[in-house]
Design a protein around this nucleic acid. Structure first.
Lengths: 141, 141
DNA sequence: CTTGACTCTGGACCATGGTCAAGGGTCTAA
DNA sequence: TTAGACCCTTGACCATGGTCCAGAGTCAAG
């Protein structure tokens, strides 16, 4: 019967080990990022140790800027032996493109702000403030 | 009596000129970004031409990444003759700092993603996919 | 047996920046 | 006068990623 007693945790034990909130775990389950676990007779969720790994996966992916939606897709792909590796790499590349684009947007903002700051003496009449003027000011005519 | 007939617009006229939605204008009014305009006998909002400038101000500031909250503060400062210019410049500098910080975060993400992508052959067994492994995989044991 | 810590479900709530709908009044041209 | 376009207010709704609450049941220690 192979009655290997693997470790089992309640939701609180998982939450402590993975350093996330209990509500977050239930939320991820609702959103399909975690599979519904077995239940004890009491109705308590009964988790194996895998779920802690999975929560770490989610956290690292979040740190790389993936949305929960994208992470859910990654998790599905990670069990798809046919399309898995290729698709996962493609997702990572797509995410990289998004990051690059966002960096360029922010660099455009940065240049705009820097120009205004450089042009502004930091004192004097409001009428001569290049920041307000550039933004479209003159409403206190 | 200086009865100069300046241009007056209904909310729809302003919306067309400033290229924003009518609801957006009312929303900005609720949020304190636009002063409550005079009303006609009918109750219709009656705008002078200044509001179009102000909406352009808001749009440009938004493009520079200011939140509506920050823009509201800028608008208040732009009428404060004592602290105006200095504070405005400080806000712009603070915003620049935020932008720089966000750029650095994204560049960190970018490096993380690039490493995973470079290490991934794009085919083969899931077990050997460095992306899944790095993210904390092995949950399909 | 009781106390306190834990868990369950369902649903409300947070910020952000709006958008849309319902049910009514107004304005203008034909 | 009437149609159609416009305006009014109030209030609900969207996505995102959770957080918190009430009211009830469970579990372990003393």
């Amino acid at each position: 019967m192979n009655t290997q007693a693997t470790q089992h945790f309640t939701i609180g034990g998982v939450a402590r080990r993975a350093e996330v909130g209990i509500d977050t775990i239930r939320y991820y389950e609702r959103e399909g990022l975690l599979p519904p676990p077995r239940r004890r007779a009491s109705g308590y969720r009964d988790y194996g140790p895998d779920v802690v790994e999975r929560l770490r996966f989610i956290r690292r992916a979040k740190e790389l800027g993936f949305t929960l939606e994208e992470i859910r897709e990654l998790l599905v792909l990670s069990t798809d032996r046919e399309r898995g590796v290729k698709s996962v790499k493609q997702r990572a590349e797509a995410r990289l493109d998004q990051v690059n684009q966002r960096i360029h947007e922010l660099q455009r903002m940065k240049r705009g702000l820097q120009q205004l700051i450089d042009a502004c003496p930091g004192h004097g009449a409001l009428e001569h403030c290049p920041i307000l003027r550039a933004l479209g000011g003159e409403e206190n005519a």
